[in-house]
Design a protein around this nucleic acid. Structure first.
Lengths: 146, 146
DNA sequence: TCCTTAAATAATAACTATTCCTTATAAAAA
DNA sequence: TTTTTATAAGGAATAGTTATTATTTAAGGA
């Protein structure tokens, strides 16, 4: 049969078709406006103020899409995804007492990368996490111990 | 009523009693003998060769105990726990193609730590993860692209 | 040695974050 | 406007893990 196996112009155009939905726009905006590294559930909560009928599944899917498109970043803490609008190179400090996640500005450790690359590895992504007590919780603990 | 609220000697001794079980010994040995950062499920599989009736729940509980005692280390990759017998300061490279986890010897980044501590944070633990392609997968991909 | 006791176990139910599935809806092409 | 199909909503399903409970067993003492 003619045309079998190879896509014609119409089919190619169809494949590329992408829709611009309000749900995606709202979820993206919520992440951009949030500076506390919200979980999917928190993003859902906030998005519902704008779009009361949005579903949690949609939030999860859109968050994954946006991450893959490089528009937002996913940070995993305690096996749970958190999201942020900052996409430049930086890392995170996680307070074990209050759970707060804070950004840490860090230069990439060239020495380490070189060492890894010497083994023939290709480094695509680097993730540093610092765990401990944030200043507030450290202070509180200091007071308690006195 | 007499004696209420305060523990007597017998009660104190009872509280401290800890049992040495075959299950715990076997799970520990399995982790020490494994050099591939096994998951709980994999540890379970291996422990069953020695103790066919051991339960998965026990494996999970013992792995957590051993981690808390500092005898083994837990590494979380893709929201899944892996375990290793090495407990000294080192980090990990994770191959996105084959999933292999490899140890990376790294000096602690003093500059970064100092920067974090300047904010009044108390750093208790540091975790570096490098994601990419291991030498084998990088080579394979190189060949494919030719 | 046998008893006692509570810590640890096996078995299994429950939980939680996330993904998958199905039907319905709506954005964009025609 | 009509058609097309990507995306949405709602809910079921899944995976990894933790909690619960009745049972077993290691350890200390009689």
């Amino acid at each position: 049969m003619a045309g079998g196996g190879i896509l014609n112009n119409t089919e190619v155009r169809k494949q590329k078709r992408k829709r611009n939905t309000r749900q995606k726009a709202v979820v993206y905006q919520v992440v951009l406006d949030s500076h506390d590294h919200p979980t999917a559930e928190k993003v859902y909560e906030r998005a519902r103020k704008e779009l009361p009928n949005i579903s949690l599944g949609t939030v999860y899917r859109v968050l994954k899409e946006l991450s893959q498109e490089g528009k937002i970043k996913e940070i995993i803490v305690n096996k749970q995804s958190h999201f942020e609008g900052r996409t430049d190179f930086h890392h995170h400090f996680i307070c074990r007492s209050c759970g707060k996640i804070e950004d840490v500005e860090t230069p990439m450790c060239r020495y380490t990368c070189r060492k890894v690359e010497q083994k023939g590895y290709v480094v695509e992504d680097i993730e540093y996490k610092f765990y401990g007590l944030c200043s507030k919780c450290a202070q509180k603990k200091g007071i308690e111990l006195e």
